[in-house]
């Protein structure tokens, strides 16, 4: 189904998307998207949405399930508090990518702004039955570079930064400030001075290689990139030093 988004407010556009989903449509193409915010906000469905144009702020916020493909850039707060699903952006995104995200995947072909991956977290979601349940591990892969405060307050999940854009500085400063869980992989060189106080470099092992290979392959599949070329380069791994960064500053 094709929805022409020209001159539609975000409210109207989302109404159309939701009613299409309700009527059982599972592929939607949005044409002429020009900065409309909140596309697919809170949408809980298995639907593929292709966006032609620039997606506005809060793309896919709170959503659970949809697969969104943006053929263009997206603005701030993409995947805000996203629960499940997938967002691929064939361009760059603004600040605060994946705020509080706790499931699903986000692939950005080019760059992301400040505070990418802030508050991203993982947990084990118990199912209804005692034996059931699944590990919720959000994954963000960014092809280009990012600005300051990458993975701030990170509490879980996986963040991979590839630095393919050729920028000299692939990340800004204060990487992983307040981080207390999860893993960051960065392809290329990062100076210790760029790290927040709560993170440190750790050695990669076999399982890391697997993880990187898995998600980089998926990333390359989404954007038609040469996986081998990307994987040839060395990655560094960052982990939180403490699970309880501020556990000792109080008097009980």
């Amino acid at each position: 189904m094709i929805i022409n988004s020209q001159n539609l407010t975000h409210k109207k556009l989302n109404e159309k998307i939701r009613s299409a989903v309700k009527s059982g449509v599972n592929r939607i193409e949005l044409e002429n998207v020009n900065g409309q915010r909140y596309i697919a906000s809170g949408l809980k469905a298995n639907v593929k949405i292709e966006i032609h144009g620039i997606a506005g702020n809060d793309l896919g916020s709170f959503m659970s399930g949809p697969e969104i493909n943006v053929l263009g850039n997206a603005q701030d707060c993409v995947a805000n508090t996203m629960d499940a699903g997938k967002i691929s952006v064939h361009g760059s995104v603004g600040d605060i990518l994946g705020y509080g995200m706790r499931g699903g995947k986000v692939f950005i072909k080019e760059d992301a702004g400040y505070r990418a991956g802030i508050h991203i977290k993982s947990y084990f979601a118990k199912g209804e039955s005692a034996s059931g349940g699944k590990e919720m591990v959000p994954v963000i892969v960014i092809g280009g570079s990012v600005r300051d405060f990458f993975a701030e307050y990170m509490a879980g999940g996986i963040m991979i930064l590839l630095g393919l854009s050729g920028d000299k500085n692939i990340a800004g400063n204060f990487i992983g400030t307040g981080m207390h869980g999860g893993t960051i992989y960065i392809r290329g060189k990062i100076a210790k001075s760029q790290l927040g106080r709560e993170v440190e470099f750790v050695k990669l092992d076999k399982s890391d290689d697997e993880i990187i290979k898995k998600y980089v392959s998926e990333f390359c599949g989404a954007f038609n990139l040469d996986r081998k070329k990307i994987l040839r380069e060395k990655f560094v791994k960052l982990k939180a030093i403490y699970h309880r960064p501020y556990g000792t500053i109080y008097a009980y």
Binding site: I96, Y99, Y123, F124, G156, H243, P245, Y246
Partner: peptide, 21 residues
């Protein structure tokens, strides 16, 4: 608490004063 807050077990649950958005 981990289930309900959707955060990892045993790590501090940080909600800083600013919403960074």
């Amino acid at each position: 608490i981990s289930q309900t807050r959707m955060i990892p077990t045993g790590t501090d649950a940080l909600s800083p004063a600013p919403h960074h958005d």
